[in-house]
């Protein structure tokens, strides 16, 4: 499990979640995104193309980051959720909280 944080397209920070986003590594993701936020970044896209599964603490860290980014007048988007992951967001109603794009390209549009 690992996170790849980079700026591919202009000012959008793209975070790739490789493997799992669970209780054992959620702080790693949180610290990486918060470091970018403190560095001035305001637009974030978390991409789940290569993600196996997410647990409740992984969902929780996304909620926490969303709040912190909004407080700084930024935006957090999610992309490329497979059917299982999308169902997790629907079950927890977090699909109403996040803007979720079908693909990374779609997520980057009109940021």
């Amino acid at each position: 499990m690992a996170f790849d944080v980079k700026r591919e397209t202009g000012e959008v920070v793209i975070v790739d979640v490789e493997g799992q986003l669970i209780v054992g590594n959620r702080q790693e993701l949180k610290q990486a995104v918060l470091a970018e936020l403190e560095g001035g970044a305001r637009k974030f896209l978390v991409d789940f193309t290569n993600t196996g599964y997410i647990d409740s603490s992984g969902l929780g860290v996304l909620v926490s980051l969303s709040k912190k980014i909004r407080e700084q007048e930024g935006e957090l988007r999610l992309s490329s959720l497979n059917e299982d992951l999308r169902t997790l967001f629907e079950l927890t109603k977090l699909d109403t909280l996040f803007r979720i794009a079908d693909s990374r390209e779609e997520g980057l549009q009109d940021f």
Binding site: D55, S56, L59, G60, L91, L94, L97
Partner: peptide, 21 residues
């Protein structure tokens, strides 16, 4: 229930809910 409007923005509280679902 973590899906109610007052709990939706909480960071924790979804574990048992997910297990049951």
């Amino acid at each position: 229930d973590p899906t109610t409007p007052e709990n939706l923005l909480e960071e924790g509280g979804r574990g048992l809910f997910l297990m049951r679902k």
